[in-house]
Design a protein around this nucleic acid. Sequence first.
DNA 1: GAGTCTGATGAAACCGGTTACATCGGAGGA
DNA 2: TCCTCCGATGTAACCGGTTTCATCAGACTC
Lengths: 339, 339
Amino acid sequence: MGTTRGRGPTIRDVARQAGVSAATVSRVLNDSPLVVEPTRARVRAAVDELGYRLNATARTLSLGRATAVGVVVPFFTTHSVIERLRGVVARLSGGGQRAYDLLLYDVEAPEQRADAMRDLADRNRVAGLLIVSLPIFDDEIDALQRDDLPAVLLDVSHPRLPGVVVDNVRGGELAAEHLLAKGHSHIGFVGDHPTNEYGFTSSEDRRRGFSSALDRAGIRLDPSMERYGVPDRDEADVLTRSLLQQPAPPTAIFAASDLQAIGVLRACEALGARVPDDVAVIGFDDVDLAEIVGLTTIHQPLRESGELAADLLVAAIEHGVHDPVQEVQELTVVERRTT
Amino acid sequence: MGTTRGRGPTIRDVARQAGVSAATVSRVLNDSPLVVEPTRARVRAAVDELGYRLNATARTLSLGRATAVGVVVPFFTTHSVIERLRGVVARLSGGGQRAYDLLLYDVEAPEQRADAMRDLADRNRVAGLLIVSLPIFDDEIDALQRDDLPAVLLDVSHPRLPGVVVDNVRGGELAAEHLLAKGHSHIGFVGDHPTNEYGFTSSEDRRRGFSSALDRAGIRLDPSMERYGVPDRDEADVLTRSLLQQPAPPTAIFAASDLQAIGVLRACEALGARVPDDVAVIGFDDVDLAEIVGLTTIHQPLRESGELAADLLVAAIEHGVHDPVQEVQELTVVERRTT
DNA sequence: GAGTCTGATGAAACCGGTTACATCGGAGGA
DNA sequence: TCCTCCGATGTAACCGGTTTCATCAGACTC
């Protein structure tokens, strides 16, 4: 307060105070070797005295490159997205150097996805883009490449961009193999609508792997054993009830996500079906919830996926993208009390 | 690719294309009434033709005010913080206009708290600061006010800043009253260390309210019935075991958070204590987990608190802070299966 | 028909940094 | 002693917007 109405001292104020030019101050601030020690000390003193702080906006404009990365996330969604984001955040904004600021773009509705992409790309305030769980289209990639804006995908993939994913089809197979090994042959599936407005495909991929592994064991995943809905607990509950209230209900259910598996468990409880004796349940993701409720599930390294994606993005920003690597992370079955 | 090496068209390119000056283009872009319709149309056409997009960095620099807000969060922590953040994000980055970008600052270690505060305040790239769950010191508030930077607190309070909180002391009382009404008189507490490196105080506030409500009922919260540790599930598990393995174990336990309550439940299960018959358990927060495991808890409106705080911040940015309101949100007991 | 007013537009300065290029002074060599 | 070279510093242009102020043309008045 007082005279400096909001605006702090500028580099020229420091220069005046130190009796040098703005260029020299800038050099000192950027550790240029061109400045001799006594001058350097005077500038440092002036900086301290005035409480000068560099203006990141001006710097970004002058340099032509941003110091922030944009992270596009369907934030409202599940625990798994958040867990991934934890990894991203820890790597990007936590780690000591704090090299990149993190601009968070929440996508709350399908049409916002495109908005976010356009906004971030065109308003060039970010040095790169990390896109979580949201599919991206070719023309959007064109736009990114036109702007030289590196992008990394997490939990989705596209041949033209680096990404971190798991093999969801394989995950479905693992789930099937686990249930088969437990002696089940009459098995149900609860997952997302194969086509949904966001374009999420992991549920369908998991179902495909699941179904084909059953096929190989000579078991057909009958349409009457499949239920589809929006990926949420209550919906999964409802779907499961309809699954279990058939003449020949399944003895095991594969849910496309842990959250849905929780809904399945609740339906079982409501209908008096004992888990795992009457109905075995296996989920997917291994969010912290799964451990808490003792859910058997397919584990994927969520947090690590975020860290890895963040590292890939930083590398892409700093060294360019040579060829878009697809990091495929390992899946494992974690057996708990529901199978 | 092509000639435009990374940099897109500028406002002067548009001006040239439209046969007007940069000033006029700027006026059109900002909906100034000073531009006559035919000119306006020409500029619009040029904008479309060149695919021009405004450079937010340059705009921020020129205007002297940022279009982003900084959100400081201990991101790694519990579900409740995330749930709050959901509210903030939905309000700030979701809602149609997308008026403010959201710069996320994760605080992973106590010393980073101060760094984040200084960084955000001084590098003036944000129009305001939303600080979640982290206490703030007077000299930091001085610095913010010196820079005219509005700030809003969420889940912490300070007389000089607007904030959104619940009355944790009252929440503790509610928990005690609920357990007393259930007929318990021998009651334990599991919470955070009263002093911790982040300066979180909610656990201690809750304990105080809890303890004084017991007092009023003529029951003393004996030190042997209290256990303190870091706020995490495993630690709560361990603490609870030591609580229950005493000569006269409590018949009810109040945990300072739902996460800790989950640890309490796990310890009960491990020790063969039946909930709620042998030991009743009540938590605090009402995160989604609580509903899933059927935990009785003190409900606080987490998501709404985030929305409210975001609204307060936007108001503070746009209209200034007149006097720092403290919004105190309602707490209620949600009875489920653990009491 | 000359003078005044008004509304649309342009020229140029500014926001706060960075950096290519110019300048200057001193050290070293002939 | 003079010249060259080089290292330290300054000058000024630039990044891409916004905005003040000047200018200019047309409308209106008398």
